[in-house]
Computed example of a mutant assay.
Amino acid sequence: MARSTRTNRSPFRVFHTVGLLTAGAAMLFGQHLATAQDAGDTGLAQTPLFVSESNPPLNMLVMGRDHKLYYEAYNDASDLNGDGVIDVGYKPNQIDYYGYFNNNACYEYGNDKFTPVAAATGDKKKICAGGNRWSGDFLNYLTTSRMDAIRRVLYGGTRVIDTATSTVLQGAYVLAPTGN
């Protein structure tokens, strides 16, 4: 059997030798890179974020699917300001009523809708002086249903007209209570 010459070696042996040299170089340089990275504080989490930390939810919705969603939001059987006393009637100096209307604006009724016409005055900016003006805060107290509040929070309210120049929001239809 004749000994193989340098030009007669199989291509597999050449690729094998080149692969071993490349792997050796990668191990040497890779070790150097790993120790260089470990020396500094990178601030990266070493475990998945959802496993290592527990944060409370930012927003939680708990709603029922019953007829009470269409009741008035502000009734005379609730403690709205948290003082331990049931709030009966409209209390503009103590409570800001949430709804479709701006609390600090005055509205006039015409053409089947309320339109803001002026800024409210007073300490809490809820007083509307003059003629047929209505306080936005008072309108929220009178007209907001629980469904309206949910709709406003989730997607801004129910729009019946929404153009570049005009947006009209419509409140939920609330049945008047019947006397039994």
Results as ranks from 00 to 15, higher is better:
T5Q: 05
T5P: 00
N8V: 05
P11W: 03
F12K: 12
T17D: 03
V18I: 09
T22S: 09
T22E: 12
T22Y: 04
A23G: 11
A25K: 08
M27G: 15
G30T: 13
T35V: 14
T35L: 07
D41I: 09
L44C: 13
A45R: 00
A45D: 15
P48A: 08
L49D: 14
F50I: 15
F50L: 15
F50R: 15
E53G: 04
E53H: 07
S54V: 14
N55R: 13
N55C: 10
P56W: 00
P56C: 01
P57N: 05
P57S: 06
L58H: 03
N59P: 08
M60N: 11
M63T: 15
M63L: 15
H67P: 00
K68D: 14
E72D: 09
Y74C: 03
N75M: 06
N75D: 13
D76G: 06
A77E: 10
S78K: 05
S78A: 08
L80D: 00
G82P: 09
G84Q: 06
G84E: 06
G84D: 03
V85C: 11
I86E: 15
K91Q: 06
P92L: 03
P92K: 07
P92E: 00
P92A: 04
N93T: 11
Q94S: 08
I95M: 01
Y98L: 08
Y98W: 10
Y100H: 10
F101I: 04
N102E: 15
A105F: 05
E108R: 01
G110L: 09
N111H: 11
A120D: 05
T121W: 00
T121V: 09
T121G: 02
G122Y: 02
G122I: 06
D123T: 14
K124T: 08
K125D: 09
A129T: 09
G130T: 10
G130K: 05
G131T: 06
R133F: 05
R133K: 15
D137N: 11
D137Y: 07
F138W: 13
T143F: 13
S145W: 02
S145G: 11
S145I: 03
R146I: 14
R146E: 10
R146L: 13
R146D: 07
R146P: 03
A149L: 12
I150T: 09
I150M: 15
R152I: 09
V153M: 06
V160A: 05
V160S: 09
I161C: 00
D162Q: 05
D162G: 01
A164H: 06
S166C: 02
V168R: 00
G171M: 08
A172L: 08
A172T: 13
V174S: 14
A176G: 12
A176D: 07
P177I: 11
N180M: 01
N180P: 06
